Structure formats: C-alpha cells, structure tokens
Simulated assay, not measured.
Amino acid sequence: MQIANFGVEEWLNTWEKKAKYDISQSSIEALTLEELIGLDGTSVRDYFEGLGKRALDYGWIEGSNEFKELVASLYQTVQSENILQTNGATGANLLALFALIEPGDHVVSMLPTYQQLYDIPKSLGASVDFVELREEDQWQLDLDVLKAKIQPNTKMICLNSANNPTGTLLDKATMSAIVDMAQVVGAYIVVDEVYAPLTDEGEFVSIADLYEKGIATNSLSKTYSIPGIRIGWTASSSEVAELFRKYRDYTMICGGVVADELAIHALKNKDKILKRNKKIVADNLAILKEWVEQEPRVSLVSPHYVSTSFIKLDIPQDDHSFCIELLEETGVLLVPGTAFDLPQHARLGYCCREENLRKGLELLSEYLRRFD
C-alpha cells in the first residue's frame, strides 16, 4: 500500500521536542495526572491504591459499559452500544475509513483538514475530490462547490468540524444541508469532531445525531486535555457500529484497563474540565487577537473557540524554512502551512500556558522584524 508522508505528524515528530516555546500544538494545555485525578478531590495515591489489585488483562474490548454510557450521553440520539472505543480520534478515523472505503470508491474531502481524511482513502484505492476552503471566505465550506463535487458513486464525504488547522465551524444549518446532499446518493459522512467548540455560539451539532449514515469520530485529546491516555471513539448508528466491529478487531484489541478508568474519571468530571478549558480558550484567544492586531506581518481568521488557529504570514520566505529557522534561532515552534498544503501560513496553537504563549508571540514578532 502506498501512502503519502503525514505532513503535520512528521513535522512534530522531528521538531516538537526541540522547542522551548511550543505554540504549535492543537490541544488545550494538557492536564497532569495529579490534576486529572484531583478534579473530584481524590489524591493520586488513593486513586491508584484502588486500582492496585486490578488485573492488567485486556479489560473491556470495546470500552467498558460505563465508558460507553458516558460517551453516549454527549449525544442526543446515539445509544451506548453504538460507541466503540479507539486509540484516539486517529484510530477512530482509521477504523471508519478502513471499514468503508474500497478501491474505485469516490470520496469528497475538505482541504485543509487532517490529512488522514483524504490520504487514507487514496491509499485504499479511492479517488478523492476536494472542496478547498478559502481564506477570503473565512475558511467556510462552499456548499455549492461541495454539491458540484458529489457524484452518483460518491461513497463518503469527509469533514472536520471544527476544522484543523483553521478552527472554523460547520454549524447546524450547514451540516443539515450536507446531509441532504449525501442522502441523494446514499453517501456516508465522516466528521472528525475532536475540536468541539468551547462556546454555545454557532449551533454545533454532531453528525451522529443528524444522519443515519453519519459517523462521528472524537477523543479526549483536545477539548478534554488528556491526549496522553490515547482514548477516542466512533459514534454511529447500530448498523454502522456492527460493521465496524469486524474491522476494529484488525486495528485495535482494547484501550487497556487503566486508560479506560482514566477516561471514565475524566468524563465523570467533564464539567470541571470544560470550565477550566473555556477560560483558557477565551483568555488566550484574546491575547492572540490583540497580538495579531499589532503584528503587521500576520493576519488571522479567528477560530471558533477551539484550540487551533491558522495565521497567514506576509514574509518573503517560504513558510517551511521560516519555521525551521524560527525554531533554531528562538526556540519558538509553529507548524508550517505546507504541512496542510497551504503555504505561507502556519498553525499556531494558542491554548498552551499563558506565559508560554506570550513569550512565544513576543519572540515571533521580534523575528518577523528582520523582514521590515
């Protein structure tokens, strides 16, 4: 099987541990184990004493019943038996694509988006057409262009809402219009929903609650700040979940008993996590916007209260070499737009610690002055 190099992951694998001021990441500042366990007043010692006699066997293959029930409660219509635990949202996307895409299928994807959503279908022998998001349109999906790309044999529409890297949202009205288009040809819709917005504005709705052939992929990595436990899921109809089970056996046996328990603890305390993260997003987004207003070589379409943003760079240098030299000379890490097939941009992850963000932006501005 031939597949393209994974741009953003390859970049981070190479450079992220060399950064002093990492403002590239798309998660909200990760919780420590102590912070996670302490959300309900429990100490790490007491928590793990309770787990101390737990056998480290395979545990629940699809995720424990409690995990599945807690995840199902995040949706309006999805039943717990139709939640399948995966290795992060990356594993959820892989499962959906591996199970449904065959050679000769036709897929429509947005661009930019998470590279999995179009390069895995290509590697499986599907043809992929793109609906390109445009900065002048505020990175919004053009429904007329999408409709024109859909063919009678379109098997799947792959979307990402909120979008990585731009942080823009497909609202309920837009998603309903896309469902209407998909129903005409019987296409599946896979939506990577790992960047659920931390605001009530914009009418976010999960595709799993809108469409019987809609598949939502998600995880605890971004909105819930615990990427290190590597727990995600698919949410779908019973028919799709039953199909996925066969393919899931080839991609993942289980998430492990400790990770499942930590996921349950996080979901039980989700209101506390979301309160913390809403503050981080709101406070840091205000800092980012103020910086952009004062920085003549950067522009930004504001993200929709999610943890990723995509700045445009007005510089006489390609973004890839710029980001390498920026890191080597200042310790500041961004992800170049070329990793998302959009040169002269960069992903700026603003939901890190405030002091890290402020210092990273200060050094970035100082570095940009060499082009004045």
Rank of each mutant, 00 (worst) to 15 (best):
K270I: 07
E135P: 06
L169V: 03
S365F: 03
T338K: 11
Q138F: 14
D260R: 02
G186K: 07
S127I: 02
W233G: 01
N153D: 15
W233R: 00
C158V: 12
G331S: 01
S176H: 12
A177T: 11
E9Y: 10
K213C: 00
T168I: 15
L143Y: 04
P343D: 06
Y224Q: 00
V306G: 08
S225L: 02
D319G: 03
D200S: 15
V8C: 14
G50V: 07
S109I: 00
L357G: 09
A162Q: 09
V108W: 01
S43M: 07
T223P: 02
R358K: 13
A148T: 13
L94I: 14
Y350R: 09
D260C: 01
L262W: 03
E193I: 01
N93M: 13
Y367R: 09
I264V: 12
G63C: 05
K20M: 13
K279P: 05
P336V: 06
A263Y: 00
S109Q: 07
F371L: 04
V145I: 13
L326S: 05
L124D: 05
S64A: 04
T32G: 12
L300I: 03
L285E: 03
E136R: 12
G104E: 08
N269C: 00
I28Q: 05
L334R: 11
I315V: 06
R353I: 08
S365L: 06
A282C: 08
C158I: 07
A282E: 13
E366Q: 15
I315D: 05
K222I: 11
D137Y: 11
S221A: 14
P343S: 02
N82E: 00
L333Q: 08
L33C: 10
Y188N: 07
A208Y: 02
